[in-house]
Design a protein around this nucleic acid. Structure first.
Length: 581
RNA sequence: GGUCCCGUGGUGCAGUUUGGAGUGCACGCCGGCCUGUCAAGCCGGAGGCCGCGGGUUCAAAUCCCGUCGGGACCGCCA
């Protein structure tokens, strides 16, 4: 039907007779004998000069046959790629008429997102999604090329798998042939990729769909896509090099230049400086350590395991109402309170708690924070992890730049803790990653050997793992680790976690079985394609880089999923619904 | 499970604080004019359950309660 795409016509095509197919983007009438029709396809628009009697309206689908002509001098349009030319002597064939679209398709107008999702097939015609989905396709393509150039083999893993109680909530699928039993949809191909290492595949990768039944966010959908990888006989450094190469190649393909990589930052440094394990390093306002200043203070609230501050330059003008709101936020995030201090001319501190602090303590705060007149200081005193969390969130609220500012700041966060806390009920440690994560070589001895007493919680919580995260501008793009391939280490970790032989066998039996038959040392990683594409596209929300996303409550306004199913289907699956609460 | 914001012709907004006639803006739509526009322009017109339900009031888009839908976040996401 078509000889050319609209957006690709140039002066070099002048004189050619072409056939174009596309949608009417806009029509400009100039009386009985002249009208301009902008015809749009995936590649762009081109202006067609038609008789005024041609009755076509916005979003009509046309086939136009005509001659590519140079526009009359002075009528070129530098705004569009085809602005030097136009199609004349047009024969217009209406392939499909169209009602006026319920949402404007111009990119100049913001449309309510619910409307956009309801008419997603129209929204997809808009430039924004056309561009973002092309970016996504480019990233997928380049990532594939990069992984394969590095010796990785694409292997597909099942979508219907066994449910495991660990981690995120599973989506489950009832079994028809075995009523009362359920498959789970994969949260990730984690176990299968490790099995493929035991299977001698050496280097596995997959652009894998993953599903987690957890509450949605700007950077989280039920369904998402990961570049998933695993390799044998490699170190964590090697894996990070593979992934770095793939990610930078993707970024370069999209932006045209290869961004710098900031290198490694330890988890502890990220927490101490940024109050987060996914630091946004595009702006300052780092957390400032004040704990040593108050070891002997009269002010009880500051005699805490940790006192840190964030300095907001020029923040002294904040109103009491704003400060009260911040205090409320801090409490909601888990702090007992938030202390604020205005820095006055001459460097004195104006604060509700100033009267409880000595002159030397106040002076020490000014010195440590390098506070300037007009600044505002925010202080939190609490357990160290609480101070990190609260000030980390406060820092983002005060200073986080828009997504498309500050360049691309890739970095690796390394040396994650092996355990993230102690279960208040069982007293056992809680794994920070998953139970197959290899402890850090410098800390493995502190964990003791199989059968020895469990070390104190201070020892356990200080133990690091060989887990690492890839972070970009405050977003966690992905994570990975070196896996445990030694049976004695794995047994000791299970012992520390309080997972007995029976539970091991029930939950991970097939993997442990596999490891008995010759498991290579292996390590892996996975990063979110949706998140990477969003950041490369300058989007705050991954819905903007997903063709058919769901709303925050998990609904699809286009198809009305999820929906009820027939009684017949329920019967077939051996299911009966509970009455609605 | 929780906090906050939003819901007004097809679309995007203003109006809500301080209750008084569906009042206004922009786009789109329909009709007319117009031979070089490109967000074309000019003239005219149509189009409303103010998300839904209840309450207060002489009177509710506006105040109160509930509910539905959308968004941001905390929890959650090994």
């Amino acid at each position: 039907m078509r000889s050319h795409y609209c957006g690709q016509l140039t002066a070099a095509d002048i004189g050619s007779t072409v056939s174009l197919c596309g949608w009417v983007a806009r029509r400009r009438e100039h009386g009985a004998s002249l009208a301009f029709v902008d015809l749009r396809d995936r590649t762009g628009v081109v202006q067609c000069v038609v008789d005024g009697s041609v009755d076509v309206r916005n979003e009509y689908v046309l086939r136009v046959t005509g001659v590519v002509s140079r526009r009359p001098a002075g009528n070129e349009n530098a705004e569009i790629a085809t602005g030097e030319v136009e199609i004349t002597e047009c024969q217009v064939e209406v392939l499909s008429a169209a009602e006026p679209p319920p949402i404007p398709l111009s990119d100049r107008i913001d449309v309510d997102e619910n409307q956009r999702l309801r008419y997603r097939y129209l929204d997809l015609r808009r430039d924004r999604l056309q561009r973002n989905l092309r970016t996504r396709a480019k990233v997928n393509s380049v990532v594939r090329q990069s992984m394969e150039a590095q010796g990785f083999l694409e292997i597909e893993t099942p979508m219907l798998i066994a449910s495991t109680p660990e981690g995120a909530r599973d989506f489950v699928v009832p079994s028809r042939l075995k009523p009362g039993s359920f498959y789970a949809l994969p949260q990730s191909p984690q176990l299968f990729k490790q099995l493929s290492m035991v299977g001698g595949m050496d280097r596995y990768y997959q652009i894998a769909r993953c599903l987690r039944d957890e509450d949605l966010r700007a950077d989280r959908q039920f369904e998402f896509t990961q570049l998933d990888a695993e390799a044998s006989f490699v170190s964590g450094d090697d894996v990070r090099r593979f992934i770095t190469e793939a990610v930078l190649a993707a970024a370069e393909a999209v932006t045209g230049s290869r961004p710098a990589f900031l290198g490694d930052m330890t988890w502890l440094e990220a927490q101490e400086r940024f109050g987060s394990d996914k630091p946004d390093v595009r702006f300052g306002m780092e957390l400032i350590e004040l704990t040593p200043l108050f070891t002997a203070t009269e002010f009880n609230a500051f005699r805490a395991p940790c006192v840190k501050a964030v300095r907001e330059p020029g923040g002294a003008g904040r109103t009491r109402k704003q400060l009260d709101e911040m205090t409320e936020n801090a409490k909601r995030w888990g702090a007992k309170g938030l202390v604020w201090m205005r820095v006055e001319e001459g460097g004195t501190l104006n604060s509700p708690v100033a009267k409880f602090l000595s002159e030397s303590e106040l002076a020490a705060i000014v010195t440590a924070t390098e506070a300037q007149p007009g600044d505002l200081l925010y202080l939190v005193a609490d357990e160290r992890s609480v101070v990190w969390h609260v000030l980390g969130l406060l820092r983002l609220q005060l200073g986080k730049p828009p997504v498309n500012e500050g360049g691309l700041n890739f970095l690796w966060v390394v040396d994650f803790p092996l355990f993230e806390g102690v279960d208040p009920e069982t007293g056992g440690p809680i794994p920070a990653h998953h139970p197959f994560t290899m402890p850090h070589p410098e800390d493995i001895d502190s964990l003791g050997a199989l059968g020895e007493p469990v070390p104190g919680s201070d020892v356990l919580l200080a133990a690091r793992s060989q887990a690492y995260d890839l972070v970009l501008n405050g977003w966690e793009l992905g994570s990975g680790s070196v896996r445990i391939h030694r049976g004695d280490v794995q047994q000791r970790v299970f012992e520390l976690l309080g997972i007995g032989p029976e539970e091991q066998q029930r939950k991970f039996g097939f993997l442990l079985d596999a490891f008995r038959f010759g498991a290579p040392p292996h390590a892996g990683f996975a990063f979110g394609i949706d998140r990477l594409v969003a950041l490369l596209s300058g989007e705050e929300n991954i819905r903007e880089v997903i063709a058919f996303p769901k709303t925050q409550s998990g609904l699809d306004p286009l198809t009305n999923a999820p929906s009820e199913i027939d009684q017949k289907q329920l019967n077939e699956l051996g299911l009966r619904l509970l009455p609605k609460a």
